[in-house]
């Protein structure tokens, strides 16, 4: 196809952004409409927040994804194009509702703009679909949102989705209780975040805590807790992280549990996830379609002691996974 306009007059959009043309748009809209309705029917009312947020509100906690674009308004205040919807929704929850209104359930289909690694070719502008539950009992919230995320993926037309489930605190607790220096612990956790297991192995050897490397490498498909021995890995079964994780796994339906990969090396990609964390996968796509977790730390940064749990899916990746499954990829 020859573009109508070519040559020196052509002006591509900013790096990391793209145009969506009618054929794709029709499919994307059909898919997202079903997903939005599903969340709304589940009691997660759709909200819209401003595209622009004050930089100090969006980036002030330094817990969310870094913003890609900033600008100055006529009063000299620094604004950013929101990098995420969880932070604005937490702002809405703590500023627009009385504490006795909890628990609050919200959903959204919204664009966000985030910083990407140079040369990675990632999109700066993404269209996210997600849900947030604020002020509910943490394990109940996790089960509710994990299953809702699964239903959303099924409603999009995905057959083979799976969920990786972990808790970043497990490794941290092991290192803290083993008397590892804060510096060594940070280097090791950083290597886990970078998925550099060669460095994890050599560090674990050096600090004489080989279980740290074993935990970082533990992935169990279709998790069966009855066959799993946490003590052998140096995990204290009474620790908050392990009891949260096991309570959630036990409460999930057997059909859902069959799709879960218990992943003890799963590290959150966003800093506000401070407990249970998960990612959504499909074998047709080589990267996570989205993820979620608990973010009590973010609520604390907004002065609330409530707990929060949510997820977000990259709708364009979900759409690509649907197309991939239709082509028979990954099966």
């Amino acid at each position: 196809m020859t573009p109508i306009l070519n040559g020196s007059n052509a002006r591509p959009g900013p790096s990391g952004t793209r145009d969506v043309l009618p054929d794709e748009m029709r499919e994307l809209r059909d898919m997202t409409r079903v997903m939005v309705d599903l969340l709304d029917d589940a009691g997660y009312g759709e909200v819209r927040t401003p595209t622009l947020e004050y930089e100090r509100a969006m980036d002030g906690s330094e817990l969310g994804p870094r913003a890609a674009y900033r600008l100055i308004d006529e009063h000299g205040d620094a604004l950013v194009l929101r990098s995420d919807m969880t932070v604005p929704i937490v702002r809405v929850a703590v500023t627009r509702y009385e504490p006795n209104a909890l628990p609050l359930r919200f959903s959204y289909l919204a664009r966000a703009w985030r910083r990407v690694k140079p040369r990675s070719g990632e999109a700066r502008e993404i269209l996210q679909l997600g849900a947030e539950l604020i002020g509910s009992e943490p394990a109940d919230a996790a089960v509710e949102l994990l299953e809702l995320c699964g239903e959303a993926l099924s409603s999009a037309g995905l057959a083979d989705w799976q969920i990786g489930l972990g808790d970043g605190r497990i490794l941290g607790e092991l290192l803290a209780s083993s008397g590892v220096s804060a510096d060594d612990a940070e280097v090791l956790l950083e290597a886990v975040r970078d998925q550099d297991l060669v460095t994890v192995d050599s560090l674990a050897q050096r600090i004489a805590i080989p279980q740290a490397a074993t935990i970082a490498r533990t992935r169990i498909n279709g998790v069966d807790l009855e066959e799993f021995d946490p003590v052998g890995l140096g995990i204290n079964p009474a620790s908050p992280a392990w009891s949260d994780l096991t309570a959630v796994v036990r409460a999930l339906s057997p059909e859902f549990r069959a799709r879960v990969v218990l992943d003890l090396g799963l590290a959150p990609k966003i800093d506000y996830y401070d407990g249970l964390v998960f990612e959504a996968y499909d074998p047709a796509i080589g990267r996570a379609l989205g993820g979620g977790g608990s973010y009590d730390a973010l609520l604390r940064a907004f002065g609330s002691s409530a707990s929060g749990f949510g997820f977000a899916l990259d709708t364009e990746l979900v759409h690509a996974a649907v197309a991939g499954e239709e082509r028979g990829e990954g099966s």
């Binding site: 998925q195 992935r219 169990i220 990969v261 992943d263 499909d282 074998p283």
Partner: peptide, 17 residues
Amino acid sequence: RLIANPVSHRLKATEMD
């Protein structure tokens, strides 16, 4: 070095290990 796709690393854990 031996490297793995992050999704395959989870979904094909047993065979990959």
